[in-house]
Simulated assay, not measured.
Amino acid sequence: MDTIREQPPKGPPIRGRGAQSGDASARLGLNEREADGDWRDMAETLDGPAPRLRTEVTEESPRSILSFNQSPDIGFDRSVNAYRGCEHGCIYCFARPTHAYLDLSPGLDFESKLFAKPNAAKLLAQTLAKPGYQPRPIAMGTNTDPYQPIEARYRITRQMLEVCLDARHPVTITTKSDRVLADLDILEEMAARDLIAVAISVTSLDPRLSGLIEPRAPSPAKRLAALGRLTQAGVPTHCSIAPVIPAITDDAMEAIIAKAAGLGVTSAGWIPLRLPHEVAPLFREWLEAHFPDRKDKVMSIVRSIRNGKDNDPGFFSRLKPTGVWADLFRARFRVACGRAGIGDGKAKFALDCSQFRAPMVGGQMRLL
């Protein structure tokens, strides 16, 4: 793993945000600048403390929208993301390093300088309409959350779901927001055609703890309520305990499974904490700010399940931790699922690709 300079947090914890710094990517060497007499070196002295960090949204117009992958250890080969960056601010988010390629910080910039793709639905329709396109489930929410707060204004995720419903194209959604219920009308119709499955991530049942880990995501109670509402509506749902943070959130595993089962959810899974690239030093900063008494214990367990490293990026192994602690988590999860009568691992939702029909674009009429 690349060596990344760790910056100690300055002052009290930053409220309402996950990352504790906006340091640029040392991995790529972006935005690094030594003091050179520029007025910005004395900005805080001259102008006073910086104002409260605000969320900025930049609209962009990509030329393509569907991403394909050949990873052997994830269950989809194509995905779509309506946004770049995520205001939820989850400190553990493995997508944070992608902001470095924009010459922005994987820390505070990732959760405050967002990018929206208003033409995403149009691009998706054009892609699905191409001759020879072969349908397989499209994954939404694999990089940044499709139902983060700005979705309430842009509705890009809803527009893409409308395209998929019209094309009878199957979709999987992963989110940690109850905002998914705003599209329940579409999800119900897609569920009736076996075209949708929704996974909601619940990492803790303690709203205070959740507010530190995922500062701008809906509370655990709202996420569980959304799981129950979706289940009642006939939408296939999955409770994802992801990630499990050793010595911070792992004690909630059994209770989350029991709560989900009580709501009628029949599928659950867990994913261990991953700390790729800049996420590792950002997570260490967060530990120092919020859990200094157990930071060494947490990182010791993390390294013990990652072959002595902060992160294991290898195919097949990155989602399969090893060692005594990993075995303990697996055993606890299996026992809890057995007691709750819930599926051990993600259910194989039977999404139907046979109904696919190319969407109409450019005024062209559908032949069939």
Rank of each mutant, 00 (worst) to 15 (best):
T231L: 06
I91V: 13
V361I: 15
D2N: 13
T98M: 08
R158C: 02
Q355P: 01
C164E: 06
R96F: 10
A340R: 00
L263Q: 03
L124S: 03
D327F: 05
G37Y: 01
M253T: 10
P106E: 01
S177F: 09
L368F: 09
G314I: 10
D23T: 14
P276F: 12
G141D: 09
A152F: 10
G89H: 07
L351T: 09
P135N: 11
Q364P: 06
C164P: 03
F94G: 10
C86T: 01
N81S: 09
C86F: 08
D178A: 13
A139D: 07
F283K: 05
P313T: 06
A129Q: 03
G262R: 09
G107F: 00
T127F: 11
P272T: 13
T58W: 09
V324W: 07
S354M: 01
T3N: 11
G338R: 12
P9E: 02
D145P: 11
P246V: 02
C164T: 09
R229F: 03
D312L: 05
R306C: 00
A100T: 04
I248Y: 05
I301E: 04
A129E: 00
A261W: 03
G362F: 08
D183I: 03
S210G: 11
G338F: 02
P276A: 07
K10L: 14
R318Q: 13
R339W: 04
T142Y: 13
C90L: 12
A129M: 06
R332A: 01
D310H: 11
P137N: 03
W270H: 12
I150F: 12
E162C: 00
A167W: 04
M365V: 15
A125K: 01
M42A: 14
F94I: 14
